[in-house]
Amino acid sequence: MLRLLHIEFIKLWNNKSSKFLIICYFGLLTSIALFASIKFEIGFFKFHLADSGVFNFPYIWHFNTFIAALLKLFLAIIIVSMVANEYSNKTLKQNLIDGLSKKEFILSKFLTILALSFISTIFIFLISLILGFSFSDYNILDAIFKDLEYLVAYFVKLTGFFSFCLFIGILIKRSAFALGFLFMWFLAVEFLPYMYLWSHYSKKLADTIYSFFPLGSMWNLIAQPFTRLNAIKSIAKQVGEDVTYDYIVHWHEIIIVLIWTAIFIFLSHYLLRKRDL
């Protein structure tokens, strides 16, 4: 297993653009900490994000994992190109001839996905911990380690999304087209039909159906955290909107994403086995 990880590491780390993107990604993750310095002063209205309760334990786990998950697109580019480049450089063929089995090839990619997701999760855990200790109003142990399931959801969300990217990379074989396909999938298969269902039928129906789709189920894992803030809640109440929202990470949501992950990895292996190179 370490051998497979090491093989992939050599391929990734010697590639300047992959290295640049990975460093950028973790740099951006760290910059979540910069949210702490956001301050608005518009006349009488003073807003300091750090004081608004965003960094309170345990809410911070929810807020940070949600924001950090948006950055996963950076790593998606790496995942797609690390697969597609193997086709365009024909190095996949050479790897197989050199004695890597097709299963090992997929496994080395999947292990890399797991490693990247895991490092990202650890990273966000540490950043949140530091931010929380600096700005949280209450630092009781109970509050700190409450709601850690958001980290599990974050890990599963990244793994699922990257597995989807891996599959698309193998299916399309060209990184630019694969990223285009990913975007088209989001628009044509998930976003627009979702909007259609919402506007013509009901939000509930749209939500239910799309909680079973790849991107929809991944999105569901970590609900948007904004309406959970007291500040936002009170504004919403003033305009007469009731924002009771389901913020909890549900087990069935995690299982749906895990099933998709398994399907993508299995299909990738199947495609690779069936194809002549």
Partner: peptide, 20 residues
Amino acid sequence: NFYPYMTASQNLKLVCKIKE
């Protein structure tokens, strides 16, 4: 077929890893 962005010896190192 080799990785164009890697040097000759980096490429060979990778092959060594694959061939164990």
